[in-house]
Design a protein around this nucleic acid. Sequence first.
DNA 1: TAGATTGTTAATCGATTAACAATC
DNA 2: TAGATTGTTAATCGATTAACAATC
Lengths: 212, 212
Amino acid sequence: MKGLPYISPNAVNRLPKYLHYIQEQLEQGADRTTSAKIADTIGATSSQVRQDLGHFGNFGSQGYGYNLKELDQTVQRIIGIHVPHNIAIIGVGSIGRALAEHMDFPKYNFNLCAAFDISPKLDGTKIGGITIRHLSELPEYLENHSIDICILTVSRESAKEVAQLLYEQGIPAIWNFTNTPLDLDDKKITVQNVDFIDSLLALTYYLESSND
Amino acid sequence: MKGLPYISPNAVNRLPKYLHYIQEQLEQGADRTTSAKIADTIGATSSQVRQDLGHFGNFGSQGYGYNLKELDQTVQRIIGIHVPHNIAIIGVGSIGRALAEHMDFPKYNFNLCAAFDISPKLDGTKIGGITIRHLSELPEYLENHSIDICILTVSRESAKEVAQLLYEQGIPAIWNFTNTPLDLDDKKITVQNVDFIDSLLALTYYLESSND
DNA sequence: TAGATTGTTAATCGATTAACAATC
DNA sequence: TAGATTGTTAATCGATTAACAATC
């Protein structure tokens, strides 16, 4: 999917929802869908679905809708998971461990390749079929392996330092669970921050506002 | 903070960012700030910060800016964490455990009161200072304790069933980590979904689009 | 007082929705 | 063919930004 057009952040966030709906329908044996059906289940309008997809090409047919198998391929290509991505986990505390054990990486063409932690106790132990390496081995590992995305689950204290290392090694993307802004040049590296507490605080705000 | 005005979802998501900035400045010993400074650090415009805060009242002074201590109180009140919230974790798999151990609940006035799991092996063991109860004790517990927010970290298979139970018990809010739509009446219960895979897929999209 | 910065209105920008011709 | 649904343009809506009088 070359020359991706600009779409709004909200539209980007809808793409995975489309994918989930498509794959769920496929699992149930369906072979076609419509923009209205997609919109219904994910809480959007059919116009919006057609607009979103329309940014990337014409994938439907008038009077018919969309072929689910084709649309699955298409949305995978839009998101970029038609190509495999190599992933490493940096920091195997409780969150790193949870992600390693819980996420269905293969389903979306992600390969969990390696995990690193600073604790000597963890060195050589296993999670999710992967042997944990000591953090000191990280630079050499990255020089000899092509990692696309690093999951950053180190402590808040070492977050910026480790992130800087990843940046200097030319890692293309960081999935940042450290609740710390990494202060990297976002023209050279893609960073996605996941802040649990922000999500919980937003929930609390909605909870309060629902009491009116 | 009675009679909360409507603000957009994006604006809601900025509120925690404001809070973090304010508290970080307070920790560094600062006593005042301006909309421009807040905007700079969180990647917004000063106009936007003033608009966002302006929905809830007038908290600044011309020529001066905002008193950080007052603004901290104010934003806490806007978000709703001036009041304590009781929390229970339902499902102590790796994610439930990670949240219990990792989150700084007290900092934001959340009390982690209880944890439940279906595994008999976990019954009676501890996480984060809390004794894990068997899931069968959940209904009785909820009848005798006032829980504001349930963290739903059960398996995908039991997600809807447990959510329905929480709904029937009148739980006001669910923080949903099950990657499953809960299909509850959102006029009676507030649900915030956290989908790791969606975040990773969005990251992947941005990664691809940055290659152009 | 002069300078700075808010609170707020108006202007702009962008995203969502509506509408409909094209066509399967 | 008639009915359904896309792709796409135009209209609407809402959020963001700009501007500036008020005032600390």
